[in-house]
Structure formats: structure tokens, C-alpha cells
Amino acid sequence: MNEYGVVLESGAVRFERLLPGPVERVWSYLVDSDKRGTWLASGRIEPRVGGAADLLFKHSEITGEAPPERYREMNDNGWPSRGTVTRYEPMTALAMTWPGEGEASSEVTFELVPEGEKVRLVVTHRKLAGKAEMANVSSGWHAHLGLLEDRLAGNPPRGFWSRIERLEAEYAERFADLPA
């Protein structure tokens, strides 16, 4: 399975990971603040459509690495993300709005499909403003999903900041031929 995100359509990328199950365990890493905080962001997600999705990205809690200068404030103080739950189907799917560039919101969907003892996680991020935002978001999802894989497999977490700039450059190159 390719760990790189793929473009679905203009402004949309999709990632797939085959993770150690069972599905209840993977689901808990999406909805439980403490577990989600080990790979993405902590915070409350109300378990209903229309509920609040208030996340705090505090990368100092998911990696011991020092961030690049341009991300230092996000690492130290955290970055709040306020969204709304648009889909909530326990053990199957979770979707929420996601702050985008300017006032625009995008939408992230997590879908879980059991496959034997493993679980296929499909993350789709839609309504991205253009290829620059697609590259930025894709590098972030790529790095965060790597941390989730490590947590679920019981492995030491791989680097986040040590990978992010390289991933940003790789996604910018992958998306270079897309319309601006």
C-alpha cells in the first residue's frame, strides 16, 4: 500500500493505512482525546452530527523534536482547531469541518473498514483551497498517520518535525502539475 496521499479531485486528497485492529481500538484513537492527543490533537469531539470538534494541536506532546522556526509557536502554545461534526457513525465513520485558509473550511472524513485482524483507515480531506494547501495538509496527514501507525503497533513514535519539511517538498512536487 502506498503511504502517500493521492489526489481524488481538485481540492481533495485521500490516505489509506492498514492498521492493527480491532476496529474498536482504532476508533478509540479517533474519538478519545487522550489517545488522539498522542498522534494528532487532543480535545473534545461531541459524539453526534452537529456536535463540536474542538481540537488542540500541541506537537510538543507528540514528539520530542524541536520544530522548524516557522512552527515554533504552534509547537509551544498549541494551535486550536474548531470544527463541527458532520458524520458520526461509531466504529465506521467520523467527519468534521476543518479550518482552512482564510475563512474557508475544509472537511476531513475518517472511515474504518475491518479486514481480518487489521483495520483499513481511509482519511479524506476535501475542499482544500489549492495545491499549496493540499501539499501542506498532505504532509501533515502523512506525518500524523505515521505516528498513529507507530502507536497502534506499539513502536516508538517516528519523528514528526524531522520529516515534515521533506514531506512538504515531496507533496509540492507531486502536486506541481495540478491547477493552482
Rank of each mutant, 00 (worst) to 15 (best):
Arg36Tyr: 00
Glu69Trp: 03
Tyr88Lys: 03
Leu94Tyr: 08
Ile62Trp: 00
Arg17Asn: 03
Arg48Met: 13
Ala172Phe: 09
Glu115Val: 05
Tyr88Ser: 06
Asp76Leu: 15
His142Phe: 06
Phe175Tyr: 15
Arg151Phe: 01
Gly100Arg: 09
Val31His: 04
Gly5Val: 11
Ala104Tyr: 09
Glu73Ser: 10
Asp76Asn: 09
Asp32Met: 04
Asp54His: 15
Ala132Val: 15
Ala135Tyr: 03
Leu55Arg: 06
Leu8Ala: 10
Gly159Glu: 10
Pro90Phe: 12
Ser10Lys: 15
Ser105Glu: 15
Leu55Cys: 11
Leu18His: 10
Asn2His: 10
Trp79Val: 14
Glu165Gln: 11
Val49Asp: 07
Arg166Gly: 12
His144Thr: 11
Pro179Arg: 14
Trp79Pro: 00
Arg48Tyr: 04
Pro47Ser: 11
Glu46Gln: 12
Tyr29Ser: 07
Leu167Arg: 02
Leu19Ala: 02
Trp161Ile: 00
Asp34Ile: 10
Ile164His: 06
Gly116Leu: 01
Ala176Leu: 06
Leu19Glu: 08
Pro179Asp: 14
Thr97Tyr: 02
Gly37Ala: 13
Leu55Ala: 11
Glu117Gln: 13
Pro68Cys: 03
Glu117Tyr: 06
Gly43Ser: 06
Ser106Ile: 06
Pro20Lys: 04
Pro90Ile: 05
Asp34Cys: 08
Arg151Val: 15
His144Trp: 01
Val49Gln: 10
Lys35Cys: 03
Leu8Ile: 14
Glu101Leu: 12
Glu149Leu: 09
Trp161Glu: 07
Ala66Val: 05
His144Met: 07
